[in-house]
Design a protein around this nucleic acid. Structure first.
Length: 383
DNA sequence: AACAATATGTTTACCACATGGGGGA
DNA sequence: CTTCCCCCATGTGGTAAACATATTG
């Protein structure tokens, strides 16, 4: 799956966001809103398992394309988590792209690596992979992962890197990619986070008296208004949705928030939204603009950088293949050795009569034997 | 600009049968 | 509670047909 191969095939030439904690370049996979920090997986697990309070920090994935901003939406068709600007860039390209079904990214509370390790990668858990768990009062122990959690390619590529580091005998790519297919079927709502705004601990910068305006120019929205109004929007994403609708192309605007501060992000979004609806009778909330009155202008990706990222992303998306998941290698082996007529399975007796072949039992055939001998299918995985 | 015809790309149904797993003895 | 056996839904791949979209006249 090329989608998650940012690092696998060389990755972006442009540097991704470094981890704010360990400062390792280009490794940030999640964004913690409470800390306003970009973190790699290991630092995320380290920091947010430290205590109960930290474990309740909301985090979102980093945009797959620019890797510079928190993801705002997940595109089902692309199976990619995108920030508002990249979403606008990619999905404003043509009418087909505009029809892509997108859902807002929901924040998660589990350590990023434990989410997947406890679900798609039980293998890791079995190996004692150091996924920490929340305190006993946080009911996340064996919750199935939300599809949106796994769909993030940044996370996937980084998990893969960690898997490789975990041991040479780990066929993590097979395991992970096999599971990835199932995560392309997004299914809301999020079972992990069923109630909106449950985290009163995390500083929320939305002014409760100024809910996002329900009146939105939906005709050009890149995703449905309902998403903007959903519970998820309580995390400043209502404003993002709004700005999203007005940003015809961030290539022109260059609105990739680069500051390590959610307030900066909110500021840019809020500002654009305000600009858009300045004449509206239902003005948008200023969101966190007030918190940014003293902040320096957010550093932004230059237009060419963004364009390059988007082009690369589109190329990768075009070449992406969703490979079929083989659950039973033994059945695959058998199917490949079975006789066919015009592609369809044929009765063995018919074939034998027609060709007058004296076939050995299926697993006695040379082809089957050779196939079984292939170590790749030596073990039939059971789930 | 609107429409039809053609080309190209994508999805789906079909087939037989060993296997896996549930359920009963 | 464990073991054994039976039965049936499941899954497997290559091809053609159906369908969708893009291009051309």
């Amino acid at each position: 799956m090329g989608l998650i191969g940012n690092g696998g095939d060389g990755g972006w030439s442009l540097a991704a966001k470094p981890c704010d904690s360990c400062k390792s370049a280009g490794s940030a996979a999640v964004f913690c809103r409470a800390d306003s920090a970009f973190l790699c997986l290991s630092c995320d697990a380290k920091i947010h398992c430290a205590n109960k309070l930290a474990s309740r920090h909301e985090r979102v994935w980093v945009c797959e394309v620019c890797e510079q901003a928190p993801a705002a939406v997940t595109c089902k068709a692309d199976a990619a988590a995108l920030c508002v600007s990249c979403d606008a860039d990619i999905h404003s390209a043509n009418p087909l792209a505009q029809r892509h079904d997108r859902v807002p990214v929901e924040p998660f509370f589990d350590p990023a690596d434990s989410i997947v390790r406890s679900s798609s990668l039980n293998f890791f858990a079995d190996r004692g992979g150091g996924a920490c768990h929340h305190d006993e009062d946080v009911d996340v122990e064996v919750e199935p992962p939300s599809p949106w959690v796994i769909s993030n390619p940044n996370f996937a590529s980084k998990i893969m890197a960690e898997a490789v580091a975990a041991g040479p005998d780990v066929k993590s790519d097979h395991l992970f990619f096999s599971e990835m297919d199932s995560f392309l079927d997004f299914d809301y709502p999020n079972p992990i986070h069923p109630s909106s705004g449950t985290d009163s601990v995390v500083p929320v910068k939305i002014k409760p008296n100024n809910p996002p305006s329900p009146v939105i120019n939906s005709s050009e929205n890149c995703f449905d208004i309902d998403f903007c109004r959903s519970k998820l929007s309580s995390f400043n994403y209502g404003a993002q949705c709004l700005s999203h609708s007005v940003s015809s192309s961030s290539l022109d605007v260059g609105v990739v928030p680069d500051g390590n501060s959610m307030s900066e992000i909110s500021y840019s979004f809020g500002r654009s939204a305000m600009n858009q609806t300045s004449n509206s009778s239902d003005p948008l909330p200023s969101v966190s603009a007030s918190t940014n009155s003293n902040s320096a202008p957010a550093t932004q990706l230059c237009g060419l950088d963004r364009e390059a990222r988007v082009l690369r992303y589109r190329e990768k998306r075009k070449n992406r293949k969703f490979e079929k998941t083989i659950r039973y290698a033994s059945r695959k082996a058998y199917a490949e050795t079975r006789p066919r007529i015009k592609g369809r399975f044929a009765k063995r007796t018919e074939i034998e009569t027609e060709t007058d072949l004296d076939l050995d039992p299926i697993y006695g055939s040379a082809a089957a034997a050779a196939f079984i001998a292939d170590s790749q299918y030596g073990v039939v995985p059971t789930f």
